Simulated scan of single mutants.
Amino acid sequence: MLATSILEEHEQAVGASKSFKLKSSKLLQHMKRLRKSKNESSAKLLEDEHLQADVKISYIDVGSETDHPVLNIQDFLRMLGQCGQLDVLTGGLDLFKACQEFWHRYSEEDKSHPVFTVHADHLNRCVPMCVYADEGQSHKKTSFMVLATQPVIGKGTLASLKRPGAESEMGANMAGSSLITRFVFSCMSSTLYSKKPEVFDKLANELATQLDAGFKDGISVLYGGDETTLYPVVLYTKGDWPILKRLGALNRTHPQAIANLSESKGVCHLCMAGTEKYPDWHQCHQASWMCPESISDPRPPWSQQTLFTQLLARSPSLWGKTWLYRPDLFHTVHKGVCAELTGSGFATLDSSN
């Protein structure tokens, strides 16, 4: 779709005949035809043009009829090293310097994180990352799940990039093309897991297992022509409430509370607001496990921990474990609260007329 849009805009600007003189004209025309015939998933064109990343596709048993394809974390990082692209893990900044500076700053937030004891003498090779998952739709309106990793360090935000010298500063991983800021682990059609949720759970468990192995044993890669070992460190997982519930087997979330108002199980996995002890939903601060009022009797928001909570390195407190599952700002605000408020505003304006 992107290639089609570029080609059509160029044709409108200079004319179709001149567009044929582009070095990439043959490729763009081919991609445009794939778009019209709805065969965009065809990878043969990218292979023929040597535009496909040379990363091994592995297959794992998830309990479906056939093994499921994944891009193993170690294979992906090794591919980046072989291509001389490991600095995309830190927004283009020097990998070692950026990681060292990040952990220096992060120590002010959470000194109890295991990275400061397990990898104290090589923090410059510990790459802060997060796990991202979301359910989207294909062109044929079929739901599918995307499971990916995302570096924490990036180029910044659109606002921060306006500051002088921002290109040399360490920023959040929000600006820039998603092709070099989000790294797919695997995608899965909902037809595989909608009636058998354990199928997706096995896929998620594989990712958690690989990330745990990377943290403990490291991954050997090439950087600057030399062999070195990197250690991926997952600080959090993010997504909308349904995917957080699935990844953490959470039994206390906002959607569940809305559906079962009379049961008082709580509204959030990060505090005890909405429970019998704190029935007022607005008592989030008093009910937080970081506050003395509720820390004496916290109730874990799960009956059994998933491998994400069991394996991924976290601070030992219950708060440290639950803070692994963080509501995504995009889903909470842009597609959540603000979307509802905007819709209500339109409805109010319409009724007033």
Rank of each mutant, 00 (worst) to 15 (best):
L2G: 08
L7A: 02
L22I: 05
K26A: 14
L28K: 03
H30A: 11
H30F: 07
K32D: 07
R35S: 15
N39M: 06
S42M: 02
L46Y: 14
D48M: 08
E49T: 15
Q52L: 14
I57D: 00
Y59W: 10
V62C: 09
H68A: 07
L71A: 13
L77H: 09
G84C: 11
Q85G: 06
D87S: 14
V88M: 10
D94K: 12
F102I: 00
W103Q: 02
E109V: 15
S112Q: 04
T117K: 06
V118A: 00
N124T: 02
D134F: 09
Q137N: 10
K141D: 09
V146A: 15
A148N: 06
P151S: 10
P151E: 07
V152F: 12
V152N: 03
T157L: 03
M174W: 10
R182T: 13
M188A: 04
S194N: 09
P197W: 00
L207N: 00
L211Q: 02
G214K: 01
G224Q: 12
E227T: 15
L230H: 06
P232D: 04
L235G: 07
T237K: 10
K238R: 10
P242Q: 05
P242D: 02
L244Q: 08
A249H: 14
R252M: 00
A257F: 08
G274Y: 02
K277N: 13
K277L: 14
W281N: 09
Q283P: 07
A287L: 02
A287I: 04
W289V: 00
E293Q: 14
D297K: 12
S303D: 13
R326C: 12
D328M: 06
H331G: 07
A347P: 09
L349F: 15
